[in-house]
Amino acid sequence: MASDVGTNRVGSAMTGQVGRERRKRIVQFLLDNGLFIAFVLELILFAVAAPDLFIRSRTLEAILRLSGPAGIVLASYTITLISGQIDLSTAQVGGMASLMFAAVFQLLAWPLGVALALTVVLTIAVGLLSSYLIQQGIPSFVSTLAVGVVSGGIGYLIINLTKQPGMIRLVRPPLRDIANFEVFNVPFVIPLMFIAYAIGWVVLNQTRFGAHIYALGGNPAAAALNGINAVRIARIVLVINAVITGMAGILIAGRQLAAQPGVEGLGQSLTAALFAGVALSGGSGKIERTLIGLLFLSTLTIGLGILNVSAPVRQLINGLAFVIAILLDSIRQQLATR
């Protein structure tokens, strides 16, 4: 009798454990694939709410156009995040680059190549500054925060020096045409974004450098013990991220016909990456998924615009999306370490 009770207890404990395992698997499945489900649900929701306005090729194009420059940045941002660095200077670096470019290209009317080269040099300098600070033992989020303030200052300084009213108009061809350039009726930023992702995927999954980026983000101490040069990797990653952010800033400015300090639409990189399962602490995440995260957010922006939701509410929804993204990351971390 007593032994019966004993086995019963063991049995129920085991089913409890099986149940917990199953629950954990379900949660894991949802965390891994929830983004796809949420994206599909989002599409259905907007389609139902505004059938005639949402279901059009123009809407699709608007979503992709919005995603283009942001997606190019996100590809390199994801790699930066996986290497264990959080870059908070994106918006300011993008703005600074677009202002630099606009000042040289529009106001001084120098050739396109020279303007681009000068902008690249400036963004490289900014990336080097971030990586230098990180090398000194300062956490990346603080380093890039300070560098963001400096970059914003450089942007304002360009406006001050050129005596412009808060922004620089950017209407000189051929940039205007480049930003709106189309290949086979598709804005060229869209194929460019896919190319950026393809390169990012190959680097992360098929090269030594990518393997080292994952190792560095996952366990810096282990990476160092195995002869991986952390400083060098952080430097390369941050410089490339700054340069690409700058280029995207120029593309956005070209589309908006004006360069401003602080580019909107680049600040969602972190949210999109976290939605897609890239770990905030580095070391894990799949780059191809972040594209879905970005499309999800772009669709949200366009869809809410179609539904005529007011700006503060849209901003609130974006803010809450960020909160949800970090909560998801936290849940994922807890599951992984359990």
Binding site: Y214, G218, G283, A336
Partner: peptide
């Protein structure tokens, strides 16, 4: 082979 093994958990 270090005491903490120097392994990267997520790989």
């Amino acid at each position: 082979v270090y005491q903490d093994l120097a392994l990267v958990e997520g790989r």
